[in-house]
Computed example of a mutant assay.
Amino acid sequence: MLMRSLYLQWLPNFITIGRLVLTPAAIDMIVGEHWRAAFAIFVLAGASDALDGWLAKTFDLRTDLGAVLDPIADKALIVSIYATLAIKGALPPWLALLVISRDVLIVGAVFVAWLLARPMDLRPLPVSKATTAAQLLLAAIVLAGEAFAFPLGEATSLVFAVVAALTVASASVYLWRWVKLMGPDDVGA
């Protein structure tokens, strides 16, 4: 009974680790231009993100490890997919650079805060959740367009703009929180 309980407690973490494992598989499929397989793997990875979060919240299976692994898995998937899609010409390089820069900024800020013994609150902000959802949706749209050979058209430019705006807004909020956290200890005293 205890062993089954431990497995259940760790189920969301196992799903998150699975998403980490799926990331290089999706990248390999994109590089090889196996677009349908890349799309299927990406959808599976996205579904796993929703599933692990739902399980953790619904059944109170949250763990400290999961709180760290989940954003790492999200960032690994998004950064890898955006970089590869830009290299393959399926996504504008400026957008990929913006998305990747935001994640590098966040990871760098968390690392510096940790080095200075001023750890940041790692709970995702609403703007961050919206940004991640929009970034994942755009990647799915681009992959589906490649997989099923349908033209993305002008509406895609609007989605690019929404993703860019959310990415800049999210980066700005994190940067503001980080600057506030790194300020003098006696500010506002």
Rank of each mutant, 00 (worst) to 15 (best):
A50N: 03
L51V: 13
D52G: 03
K57C: 00
L61F: 00
L61S: 04
A67T: 11
L69K: 08
P71R: 01
I72S: 06
D74S: 06
D74T: 11
A76W: 04
A76S: 15
L77V: 10
I78R: 05
I78N: 04
Y82R: 02
A83M: 12
L91F: 01
W94L: 07
A96N: 05
A96D: 06
L97E: 05
L98S: 09
L98I: 03
I100N: 08
V104D: 01
L105T: 10
I106F: 01
G108H: 07
V110H: 07
F111P: 04
V112D: 07
L116Y: 11
R118D: 06
M120C: 10
M120G: 08
P124S: 15
P124I: 12
L125H: 13
L125D: 14
P126M: 10
V127L: 14
S128V: 12
K129T: 08
T131F: 02
T131K: 09
Q135C: 07
Q135A: 11
A140D: 02
A140K: 00
A140Q: 02
V142Q: 02
A147K: 09
A147V: 08
A147R: 02
A149Y: 02
A149K: 09
P151Q: 12
E154D: 15
S157A: 14
S157G: 10
S157F: 11
L158R: 12
F160S: 08
F160W: 14
F160T: 07
A161S: 15
V162F: 12
A165M: 09
A165R: 03
L166Q: 03
A169T: 04
A169R: 00
S170Q: 06
A171C: 10
V173M: 06
V173T: 13
Y174F: 11
Y174G: 13
W178K: 04
V179M: 13
V179H: 10
K180A: 12
L181N: 12
L181C: 06
M182K: 03
G183S: 15
